[in-house]
Amino acid sequence: MALKKKDHLELYRQMVLIRRVEERSAELYQAGKIGGFLHLYIGQEAVSTGIVSVRQPQDRIITAYRDHGVALNVGISAKEVIAELLGKETGISKGRGGSMHMADVTKNYWGGHAIVGAHLPIAAGMALGDQYEGNDGVTICMFGDGATNIGFFHEGVNLSKVWNLPVLWLCENNQYGMGTAVGRASAVEQIHMKAEGYGIPHSRLEDGMDIMKVREAVGAALDHIRSGKGPYFLEVITYRFEGHSMGDPQRYREKDEVTKWEKNDPIGIYHRYIVDEKIATKADLDKIEQTIEAEVAEAIEFAESSPDPGFDTLFDYMYASKE
């Protein structure tokens, strides 16, 4: 799947869009316009952008609460994302879900889930649905390093092998679960090794900051699964530049460590790649950045001027059955 210039520009656009939406969201949070938790994806953009860029439309995707990145990658508009963050009726989850609960089923994006690890068995069930119906879709299940220590993880992963389900277990190892470094919470630091115990083929991508490498690794994993060989486990090393959620005092890591990783900025890496390989010029990329500034500004305006859900809608969506 060789990428053309326009494809590269689109991927670059997505990564910058995520970054800007997150930066502006942090400001909106400080201004008191966003409430609850806000888990930023800054630093991890190459992972979700790479994954979504190689999936087929029939491949489902499901992730945890750090979900704004995937939301934008699958094509939920910045307007709908920011409106959701502001709790507006025009938000992608109609103001019910907030930051942690964004989904767009029409785009085969099954959400943002806030109970750590709970969505893994759910992903297995979605893959079962496709296997059962004879569809060739793969369910891509993204989760954090911290999530691999909860029972849900082990139950879901085991089941996927027992039933040979078409699921890609994709661990985004950003090296911390809240303030707990991987080595302080996981018996093995090579998280992909956990798949060994379940007889599932696995690998680790050391450089999850490089979108080209993410695409390659995820593409190979999807091919493996689509060929009927059952589940695959891919661990991708990445780093979250900001706190776990807003207001994280970050006592658990040194500023130097963050600074070191910031030098590996996935957007910077991709920028360099595009220019060095002469795929596009710096001017092309600058133009994208400007367009995005405008798009995000417009999205915020849209969100702020959108209505709150009415009190008369409180009980809407409680049950799917109409009577």
Binding site: G35, G87, S93, R96, P309, F311, T313, L314, M318
Partner: peptide
């Protein structure tokens, strides 16, 4: 509390 899973929206949540 009103018998509904709590929504995110601040005003709606307080209403519930």
């Amino acid at each position: 509390q009103k018998e509904v899973p709590l929504p995110y929206n601040a005003a709606l949540e307080q209403y519930a």
